[in-house]
């Protein structure tokens, strides 16, 4: 469970201060398939970064499994991300020198899995995202949709508690985007992983089971849609 309590975050550039989040409070249950929606600049990325423990809030607190994020130091946060969180990026961010299999096994290499486990799990996950035929391909040889599938496999291979996806379909055409969302939805159902993804695309919002709308750093709407 994630509990976000009156979180604020602003950025200083020179003399101007941008208030990206102006007090956001939100509770997310395990296994939700939640979209954070809003126009560009509304604070979606900022919120995801804070939940993803790669940024720190100015005030307020985030509790994950009852633990306050702000209480952890840099190393503890790295370990926490390593074990509990998966990331999917708008620009895929695969390691260009590694092939699909190696990219997927990257998070496992950081954990203490042995080589056999790494191999089995990565191959199984690649099969689940439908890329069993492309395990040896480097990212440059894959289409955008295929790259994002690799990224999903990489995020899920260690069976994290939460997967954070910042505009995962923004760089894909709508058909490929839908397929990716479908895949994410399947994974959410299968592993009960909490998915939090941001978007400004109404089509994408349609997939969300819960839609949280941000505007100017504030939640203006929070609705459950299906399940």
């Amino acid at each position: 469970m994630i509990k976000i309590d009156r979180i604020k975050r602003s950025y200083k550039t020179g003399d101007t201060v941008v208030k990206a989040l102006r007090g956001v409070t939100l509770t997310i249950e395990q296994g939700e398939f939640l979209s954070i929606a809003g126009p560009s600049g509304s604070g979606k990325t900022t919120l995801l970064n804070l939940i993803g423990c790669i940024d720190r809030a100015d005030s307020g607190e985030i509790f994950i499994n009852g633990e306050a994020v702000s209480a952890k130091n840099k190393k503890e946060l790295a370990l926490f991300r390593r074990h509990k969180l998966g990331f999917i990026f708008q620009t895929f961010n695969l390691i260009p020198v590694l092939n699909a299999f190696e990219n997927v096994s990257f998070p496992l290499s950081l954990l203490s899995f042995n080589e056999k486990e790494i191999r089995e799990r990565s191959m199984a996950m690649l099969a689940e995202v439908g890329l069993e035929g492309r395990v040896d391909s480097r990212p440059a040889k894959l289409s955008g949709g295929q790259q994002q599938r690799v990224a999903i496999a990489r995020a899920l291979v260690k069976e994290p508690q939460i997967v954070l996806a910042d505009e995962p379909t923004a760089n894909l055409d709508s058909k490929t985007g839908k397929a990716i969302l479908k895949l994410m939805e399947d994974m959410n159902a299968r592993y009960n992983t909490t998915f939090i993804f941001s978007t400004h695309d109404p089509m994408v919002m349609d997939y969300a089971h819960r839609l949280v709308q941000l505007h100017d750093g504030k939640i203006i709407k929070d609705e459950r849609r299906k399940k």
Binding site: G52, I54, K74, K75, A78, L79, F80, R81, R82, H83, L85, F87, F89, T91, N93, I95, P96, F106, P107, L110
Partner: peptide, 16 residues
């Protein structure tokens, strides 16, 4: 830098 940021986000330690 972005690759580096990704690796760090995924929990790679600075020393690694």
């Amino acid at each position: 830098f972005r690759e580096l940021g990704m690796m760090r986000a995924l929990g790679m330690k600075d020393s690694q």
